[in-house]
Design a protein around this nucleic acid. Structure first.
Lengths: 216, 216, 216, 216
DNA sequence: CGGTAATCGAGACGGTACGTCATGTCTTACA
DNA sequence: TGTAAGACATGACGTACCGTCTCGATTACCG
């Protein structure tokens, strides 16, 4: 690499400042939400100049995104494979719901979603970091279940993912009821009922778009 | 009331100004989202003084709430009773999804949800106007279905409501896929499968996208 | 006037704020010079928002100019006519020098001159307010003296003005010696000697600082 | 000195960098004045790190002072002795005025004077380099003239110096008229008239701008 | 039908935060 | 040790918006 061979020039970026900024940002975000988070306050709390923040993050939103990602990236469990779809989904969703309960993360997630509505650059980044990875893990679990024959091969996966995550985000954002463990497992069970093979069934393949029923 | 009996004195409130403000607000909200909507711009576009806005709405958020409510309140269909839960839910959700598709309402709804995270006064009002009424209509439909014996008496209604609305809000807000009619009916069907009595079922029709199980 | 007939609309400008801003500006200018004067400090000391300052003055320099002008405009004596050039010039220059001695105005004047070097808009305004008027007064006094035959009709007026004001500004700005009353009168006397009619003269008094030639 | 005897260690100071810095500084100063001169721009134009500048000059102002001094120090004529005060003063002032006309030095000198108003350290240095030496040369010329009997022994030298330099600085800084050769000689002549012995004089020529009194 | 009073449009007000820029210090790798 | 590069803390800049205020003008009712 040409860039590499030139060897880095100038004073290297301060890791200490970077971590202080991310920590201060997460802290203020949780206290006041994104709109209530001012760069001056973040800079002050991190013991850092505002210009240092703007040198590395173009906007408050980009900073917030990375701050939350950084704060969550600590100890993200790898994709579990428990042998059953129910187990896999629980392993995926329960820890997530539990973390969301520990702090008022809803106000941050809501602000991200709001920003994503009018800022497509941000939307891309938000999805890449917070939405797609979790969705992919769930999709993989569903794929394994189909391979095992646990669910029909023709299951509408996108719909299933929305049935799983939709209600969880709904409670996170609307706060009409707690995001309890019970709620998570109820969602998983309901979704499993909705997609499980409709036995006793006789369908081999009739016609249609995606349904692929396999009876034992 | 003394105030009432004294009869109102002074110049009456201008209905023209009120409507111009609400229209301008909705317009700017759709163009730029809540954060991008400034009171100066709304006042300018409505041909109104800023003070006139603040005389009737305490904050930008309260104004936005009422503006969207006003813009939606035109022709809201009453609670339908089609005779089947499936029909009732479709009658409830399809028009809603259709309206949401006509304009970038997601950016307004997202902003409302975000504001509700840190402003409990606003949250109360937002729920009272936009969340609770729809939820109650769906709850009533579910109640009627239980009375008819269409679904088990012990159905978890709260869970069911979240299973219906969660995925819809999810697509509205995350925009990973369109809020199509098909998606709405798929959700309804999936939820009906999830809550139907768990008795042996007999396939009625082998063809078609919407074939559903009928309990004998 | 069309503008007049429309009658003023909107809240009128706050005279109180205007005076507070001018006073605070002069104060800070004298304490810290123009470069050391920040708009934030002026706004703070005047109890005014920064935007209010920028609404009426485009730049810090324009504000400073008007602030000093305002502070000096109080009780500016009209053009004197004492009957002799010497008296007129003393009446013009002595009060000016005396005021300059009361406060460190040199730092403000110097800053104005510096700004005028690179900002021609400012230069125009600076000359119109601070340089030209005084120069015109002195020019008029010289004109009257020529009419009276006190000085030759062919006197180089521009040169004379520079001979009068140059040394005064020099001491104001370079501060190598005080801008004393004595210095002012010495300058006037020297300039009178330099421009007096070059006719055979008779010394009235042979030595001393203030002796003057009398033509028979 | 120990430092001297130990012989300097490490990389020696780069003369090339020093000259590049001074040249770049003068260049930018002339283009934009002192306030418009940023260390980053100077460093960039000189192809030098900012720290290298700060290693050798404590502040921007000190650098500017030395840069102008360096740019002028090239070919400064020694003190002339022409045999007459008029000749000496012309020899001193004319080349100076000519150089000042070649570039917009006024903006630099003005900035120096401004800085000197609030920075006494700078003032000392500015006087030592730019004011005192020229003043001393003129003072010496006046001294020689007094010895020769060309001017009265009691001549007020300080006043005379201000009468000479004041008008020149006045035009340099206020720019109301050009700093022409003619202006310089007019000043010298006027000052000579002002300080010449007040003996009966004989008009040599009655008209014209350059007629001078000759004492018999 | 003139007086009273609330509302209107306009726009200035005191604040707060924004994102940028310059100063003077520092920290690296290289010479 | 001096250097080029460039990150750093600090702090002022000029702008934008918020929510309040103060005008003169307007528009109803009430006596």
């Amino acid at each position: 690499m040409t860039e590499r061979s030139v060897a880095q020039r100038g004073r290297p970026r301060s890791e200490k400042a970077r971590l202080a900024i991310l920590a201060a940002t997460t802290e203020v975000l949780l206290e006041r939400g994104l709109a209530g988070t001012s760069m001056d306050v973040v800079a002050g709390r991190a013991g850092v100049g505002k210009a240092t923040i703007y040198r590395w993050w173009p906007t408050k939103e980009a900073l917030a995104l990375e701050a939350l990602y950084h704060s969550w990236a600590v100890a993200v469990p790898d994709e579990p494979d428990t042998g059953s779809l129910r187990g896999d989904l629980a392993a995926l969703l329960l820890p997530w719901a539990r973390r969301l309960r520990t702090q008022p993360y809803g106000r941050i997630v809501a602000a991200f979603i709001t920003e994503a509505q009018t800022n497509s650059e941000f939307e891309k980044e938000y999805h890449a970091r917070f939405v797609r990875p979790r969705r992919e893990q769930a999709r993989a679990a569903i794929g394994r279940a189909a391979v095992r024959g646990e669910i029909p091969a023709g299951t509408n996966v996108e719909l299933t993912l929305d049935l799983l995550y939709g209600p969880l985000y709904h409670r996170l954002l609307h706060r009409h009821a707690p995001l309890s463990d019970r709620f998570v497992t109820d969602i998983v069970d309901a979704v499993l009922r909705a997609i499980r093979p409709e036995r006793p069934a006789v369908m081999v393949r009739a016609r249609g778009d995606h349904n692929r029923v396999r009876t034992p």
